[in-house]
Design a protein around this nucleic acid. Structure first.
Lengths: 251, 251
DNA sequence: CGCCAGGTTGACACTTTTCAAGCCGCGTGG
DNA sequence: CCACGCGGCTTGAAAAGTGTCAACCTGGCG
């Protein structure tokens, strides 16, 4: 492994092999892969995760209707998932960040069901689904890990349904910010200060609100001293207050 | 089926053996299991699907927080899935009918994440998850089939998000009725006439509406000649009109 | 028979949307 | 370097949609 690193730096031909993932070295490993793998198993998995792919901001990783053949682990960057309906209305179904898996919606029908759009320049590891299936049979724990990831996606979505079904605008925004905060924290970033990668319109689309309502909710939370907002920069000043709004229906 | 019904009435001893599933004979097979299984594989699977369980109306199949150890195939009956939040608010995250799988939300955390409540007397086949994992390795196609089911659950939920995020009350009701209609149709029931198993309040909770709004939407659709409603009985009179409301944002 | 859960309908209040105007920051081109 | 244009954001006012509260109806069941 170390020797191939060396070779890689010395020979430009190896740029292409650079594109091969090195799961063993990846600091996101614990997010993508089950714990307690042996070295051989890691090697096997690396052979499955065949290429990294760069997606420029605004470009799509896949589109609705594209044949499904792989899921993607986000190595860096930020994505939105978007569903477009017959009548032209669309909705952002989720935002995905480093260490999360995209594309699992495609398994059911064999084609993708939404668009995955990069909101900043991003890089993903492509994991061919047929290889994942094979390997799930061989590596103990991988199957279960993948099931967990899918199941979490189901649970995540039911959380969003809750947002959309029972919360009012301010609560939705509070929940949204707390969710981002918690995920950023889990990745070692500051949970209290961050940059939003998406526009107000995209936030609104995700939360079932108009962009004006999103803007007003931000203003309200600011007026109440819970957050500071400046364009896409957000600082959470009073996280407990935010949680109260989210959880307790307090005015 | 008719003969075993008869036997059941004549001999109480048979009740217990009846409880063992017989996937090979089950008319729901194509919903639960992948196509093209050999007889041996079916036998294997029958040994996995260890028991049927009867759930009386109003009782729960599992509750949020219960340890997860099985998924359930609905053999008969009707369920709602419900999530309750800290502050006491709850939401119906879905309705499940014959041939659908319940419980996949539990895989991620190892505990169930919602309550599954029978809305009528129901019967499920219990499928222990560890057996499902094992067997997924052995039977070609079973793993993929299970992945498909989970993926469909993800896609289904994103459809609900759409409902909640971008549709207004009447559109939500139209979408809800069309969805029921289509699922009933797929199971050989009439797509145009059916009984609702849930209350207006439960419909509202699922669609993010108050029960009064649900009731008014039903009345409006009736006034426009699209449906007839009498208590829980629904007849769709003009399915195309209903689809227009659902899809086209028409007034 | 009377109660009660579930459903319908009306009137009014509240939230959110819609429409409109204007601001800000950033990148492009003169 | 500055002006301009434009996307993104904020704010206001009015309109629309939905929630809330209340009254009443209906059917099933003890």
């Amino acid at each position: 492994m170390a020797t191939s690193e060396l070779a890689r730096q010395q020979n430009t031909h190896l740029v292409l092999t650079e594109l091969k993932a090195a799961c063993a070295d990846c600091n996101l490993r614990e997010l993508c892969l089950p714990a307690g793998l042996t070295n051989e198993e890691l090697d096997q998995i690396e052979s499955m995760v065949n290429v990294r792919r760069k997606i420029r901001r605004g470009d799509t990783l896949y589109r609705s209707g594209d044949p499904f053949d792989a899921v993607y682990a986000i190595r860096s960057g930020f994505f939105k998932s978007r569903v477009t309906y017959e009548d032209g209305r669309d909705q952002v179904t989720g935002f995905s960040m480093v260490g999360e898996i995209l594309g699992m919606d495609g398994i059911g029908q064999g084609t993708h069901h939404c668009d995955a759009v990069a909101l900043e320049d991003s890089e993903v590891c492509s994991i061919p689904y047929v290889r994942l299936e094979e390997m799930s049979r061989e590596i103990n724990g991988l199957q279960r890990h993948f099931h967990r990831l899918m199941s979490r996606e189901i649970v995540r979505e039911s959380g969003v349904m809750m947002l959309l079904g029972v919360m009012r605008a301010e609560e939705r925004i509070a929940a949204f910010l707390l969710n981002l905060s918690q995920r950023l924290n889990a990745r070692g970033y500051s949970p209290l200060e961050f940059h939003l990668r998406m526009t107000r319109e995209e936030i609104g689309s995700h939360l079932g609100l108009q962009l004006e309502t999103v803007s007003r909710a931000f203003s309200k939370l600011h007026k109440d001293g819970l957050i500071e907002v400046e364009q896409k920069f957000v600082r959470i000043c009073n996280i407990e207050g935010l949680k109260k709004i989210y959880a307790h229906h307090v005015n």
